[in-house]
């Protein structure tokens, strides 16, 4: 009679061997430390970022000596004073914040039906099409897409040519605030849909059927059942879109043409145009602060649990 071991598939025996080796290298008594060990790479990465933050904090307290182009030796709050008092920075910050809020609202408005249709459609072909259409822009990249809009929306672009055919004189469609917001919405849509889709998948379709049988038409089913239950998805998607829009660089730079700077563009200018690292660092910290406050407010209002991460609902 053959030994039973011979009956096991080869892959099983390979796995058994690997497990034995692992057991020798990593005794069971170390098991409790394993999760922490696996946490290490993430901790190191985030830790480096924190170190960088301290560096930026240090820089933000020094001013630029315009004669020597060197940073001052001693600490001063001059940069913060400038940022908080000069109109230019208030304008940029207001534009960024307002833009982020508008972009988030519009994006969620567009993303919700898209995600809903993608999750609920009974046609696998349509679902695949929507999914591919969603991922396609990711392959193109933000900068290339922004240049694409330049071609389409430019003075001699497709849109203006088409308008010219029906006798409308060429319009300035680029280098203004709406153009930037438009580009941002288009860029953010896939992120929002991807965040919303799992949240909508988690709502059983039977609930909507139940609402219908209980007398709710689709509008009230949406208002009383679908919308409240998709709140975690909406908040998650909203947070992602708000922070990404607030900190975006390429779209305001390209579609705004230097006239519609967001905070990130202002930071870039300080670092790479005027070489005032101190002011750039200050602006960076302000951006971090504003972003953190927005996220903190959302957590405070809706609770971190609504992100469906903290507690898995039964």
């Amino acid at each position: 009679m053959r030994t039973p071991r011979a009956a096991y598939p080869l892959t099983w025996r390979v796995m058994d061997g690997l497990e034995r080796i692992a057991a020798a290298l990593w005794p069971a008594s170390f098991q409790r430390g394993l999760p922490y060990l696996m946490l290490m790479p993430a901790v190191v990465l985030v830790g480096l970022l924190v170190l960088g933050l301290f560096q930026i904090g240090d820089t933000s307290l020094r001013t630029l000596d315009t004669n020597t182009f060197l940073m001052s030796e001693d600490y001063t709050l001059a940069n913060y004073r400038r940022v908080l008092t000069e109109n230019f920075f208030a304008t940029v910050a207001g534009r960024s914040l307002m833009g982020a809020v508008i972009v988030t609202a519009v994006t969620l408005l567009f993303a919700f039906p898209y995600a809903y249709l993608m999750v609920r459609t009974s046609s696998p072909a349509l679902r695949k099409f929507l999914l591919v259409a969603l991922f396609l822009p990711f392959f193109i990249g933000q900068v290339v897409r922004a240049y694409g809009w330049l071609i389409i929306l430019g003075n001699q672009g497709m849109v203006n040519e088409a308008l010219g055919l029906v006798g409308v004189p060429p319009m300035r469609l680029l280098y203004n605030y709406p153009a930037v917001l438009f580009g941002l919405v288009q860029y953010m849509l896939p992120f929002a849909v991807l965040m919303l889709a799992p949240a909508l998948t988690a709502i059983p379709g039977e609930l909507e059927a139940a609402a219908a049988s209980l007398g709710a038409g689709w509008v009230r089913t949406f208002r009383h059942v679908v919308l409240p239950l998709s709140r975690p998805g909406l908040i998650g998607a909203g947070l992602v879109v708000v922070t990404l829009s607030l900190t975006d660089f390429a779209i305001p730079a390209i579609l705004g043409g230097g006239t519609q700077d967001f905070i990130a563009n202002a930071i870039y200018d300080q670092f790479f145009r005027t070489s005032d690292q101190g002011l750039g660092a200050t602006l960076s910290l302000m951006l971090v602060a504003v972003g953190s406050i927005v996220v903190g407010l959302v957590f405070l209002l809706f609770g971190a649990g609504t992100l469906a991460m903290a507690e898995a609902r039964k």
């Binding site: 059983p204 039977e206 609930l207 139940a210 609402a211 049988s213 209980l214 059942v225 239950l229 609902r313």
Partner: peptide, 12 residues
């Protein structure tokens, strides 16, 4: 009135 297989009660 319908009682569903998985009940379909509104969890919120």
């Amino acid at each position: 009135g319908m009682v569903f297989q998985k009940l379909a009660l509104f969890p919120h």
